[in-house]
């Protein structure tokens, strides 16, 4: 398991998995410093489950691919340990079973300015949980600064850890780095094709 010790203050991890119609799944992991500048970027080659995997893993296949195979591999490649890992793909939350880092799902839509302070003022033990029908009862939603986040209900301690690092993340638009990852994966794919052509 990836260690939680030795995290670097202000460093944040962003992990996502992109679905490509032909190529399959591509994972991307970006570590940013406090100023939002890139420190590390890791991306996988495309992953496409074969027929046997589809049969044998059945409904557990997505969790296996997103969390164990792609997520765990990418987080293991990071030479710096962020204070938390954020994802914009719910299935990636399963990576939490393999790492000792808090992992949170970034939900779309910024928190209106007037509401930002409410969960911040509240203690970590008094966070807001959205209606279960929003995301399913297996997720717990809360607000951190300008961002709406969710963690696995079974990992509720992650919420406390993240809110405990609020000063480091409150300023970030946590949804924005995923846009960079998507562009970088596209660029890497293009680069790969060029290399192959050459």
């Amino acid at each position: 398991m990836t260690r939680a010790e030795g995290t670097t203050p202000g460093h944040l991890g962003f992990l996502t998995v992109l679905e490509h119609e032909q190529l399959g799944l591509v994972g991307g992991y970006l570590i940013l410093n406090a100023a939002g500048r890139p420190l590390e970027f890791h991306c996988t080659a495309p992953v496409k489950p074969n027929r046997a995997q589809q049969i044998l893993f059945g409904p557990t296949l997505p969790a296996y691919l997103y969390g164990e195979q792609i997520g765990q591999t990418l987080l293991g490649k990071g030479s710096q340990t962020p204070v938390a890992v954020f994802t914009d793909v719910e299935r990636v939350l399963t990576v939490r079973d393999f790492v000792e880092l808090p992992v949170a799902l970034v939900l779309p839509g910024e928190v209106p300015e007037g509401e930002q302070s409410k969960p911040i003022v509240a203690s970590a033990n008094n966070w807001r949980v959205e209606a279960p029908n929003c995301l399913g009862s297996h997720l717990a939603q809360f607000v951190a600064g300008r961002n709406r986040l969710a963690v696995s209900a079974s990992r509720s301690a992650d919420r406390d850890t993240i809110l405990g690092r609020l000063e480091e993340i409150a300023a970030f638009d946590l949804a924005e780095p995923f846009e960079r990852i998507r562009e970088a994966v596209e660029e890497a794919q293009k680069g790969g094709r060029v290399d192959q052509a050459a």
Partner: peptide, 24 residues
């Protein structure tokens, strides 16, 4: 799983820069 990895050296003022993000 094949993984491509890139590290970016940050120098200058950015290295030690941690914004004083206000909780307020």
């Amino acid at each position: 799983l094949k993984v491509l990895s890139y590290s970016f050296g940050i120098t200058g003022a950015w290295r030690n820069q941690i914004p004083k993000a206000p909780v307020d």
